[in-house]
């Protein structure tokens, strides 16, 4: 087991290095640089642009820049973001918790709702409730995330004014709230973006879960349980559901990189200052160090996600052994 994990970690480091290197060169080969993107007025004196290019080493040959970058990476230094005028680590540190909060809540809601919906549909297979929920989940599954976000924003924030329009907290009152008021304010601002993401994901999870439940429901051990007189509720919850969770666990493992990357459109529509929005902004401003750091973190999480999924498989299904 340990040997396997070490081997996977070694592969992971190699993959991260390859991905980061490819990203570094692709970014530098694309037109533009952070200085041109930030100092974008034609009236900016050329000497000022040249000054900053020199300060950040952008006037060096690409191979030299790569060497400097590699040395910094090995020291855990992600570099300096010129558009943000802060170290990349500080920029990421301010965005990452926001994305973890949003996506964490959204994932918990999505899995809870998706599994519950799948259960209800499987239990009422072929009946109007199954048909109705299936249609509803298909509706949300096929809906573009930005459109759903805009519709929820329009209805709940603009027409009915039930929830706030954007942001993570009330920009005016938040500093003057007490502890519990702050928690409430944060949750209040979390409702629309988290609901948008949860609705979209829950629809997919429900469809997976329903199919898995129906597959397992036809197995011999389920028939045996019923024949022994086990109640239908116990059959469903203890025999069918436990075995039907395997594909959903795979989904959960793969969701980890999504959790970090965030949902770009949802973050943009609700002005949620997370990693997804940060990365897209960094593309626009050619923020090389920030983009490379975001790609490294995302690739680390993809690898970690697949390892966690394997481990969870082994925990849930005794037939599966990592060896």
């Amino acid at each position: 087991m340990l040997r396997l994990l070490l081997r996977r970690a070694g592969h992971g480091i190699l993959i991260v290095w390859l991905v980061a290197t490819a990203t570094f060169f692709l970014l530098h080969l694309a037109p533009g640089d952070p200085i041109a993107a930030s100092l974008d007025s034609p009236l900016t004196p050329p000497a000022v642009r040249a000054h900053y290019r020199h300060v950040y080493g952008l006037d060096q040959p690409l191979s030299v820049q790569y060497g400097h970058w590699l040395v910094m990476m090995t020291h855990g230094d992600f570099g300096f973001s010129f558009p943000h005028r802060r170290p990349v680590s500080a920029v990421i540190a301010s965005a990452l918790p926001n994305t973890l909060l949003l996506m964490g809540v959204a994932l918990v809601l999505a899995f809870a709702a998706g599994i519950a919906l799948g259960l209800i549909q499987a239990r009422h297979r072929g009946r109007p409730l199954d048909w109705g929920l299936g249609l509803g989940s298909l509706f949300f599954y096929s809906m573009p995330d930005f459109w759903l976000a805009l519709m929820l924003l329009f209805l709940f924030a603009f027409v009915w004014r039930v929830f706030p329009v954007t942001g993570m907290f009330d920009p005016v009152m938040y500093p003057y709230y007490g502890f519990w008021q702050r928690i409430g304010d944060r949750l209040w601002h979390l409702v629309l973006p988290a609901s948008t993401l949860a609705l979209l994901s829950a629809a997919a999870i429900a469809r997976f879960q329903r199919a898995a439940l129906l597959d397992v429901a036809g197995e011999d051990f389920v028939l045996t349980a019923r024949a022994k007189g086990v109640s239908e509720r116990r059959v469903l919850m203890h025999h069918v559901l436990r075995n039907a969770l395997l594909p959903v666990i795979t989904l959960f493992g793969l969701a980890l990189p999504v959790l970090l990357g965030g949902s770009v459109f949802v973050e943009k529509v609700f002005s949620w200052p997370g990693m997804g929005l940060l990365t897209v902004e960094a593309i626009g401003t050619r923020d090389y160090p920030l983009l490379c750091a975001a790609v490294i973190i995302a690739s680390v999480l993809v690898i970690a996600g697949s390892v966690i999924a394997d481990a969870l498989y082994a925990v849930v299904d005794p037939r599966v052994r990592l060896e």
Binding site: L150, L153, F158, V165, T166, G167, S271, E281
Partner: peptide, 16 residues
């Protein structure tokens, strides 16, 4: 700060 121009406008229209 709201990076989406539409969201910024909606904030003014809604009184936020």
């Amino acid at each position: 700060i709201a990076p989406d121009p539409n969201a910024s406008l909606v904030r003014v229209l809604s009184g936020d």
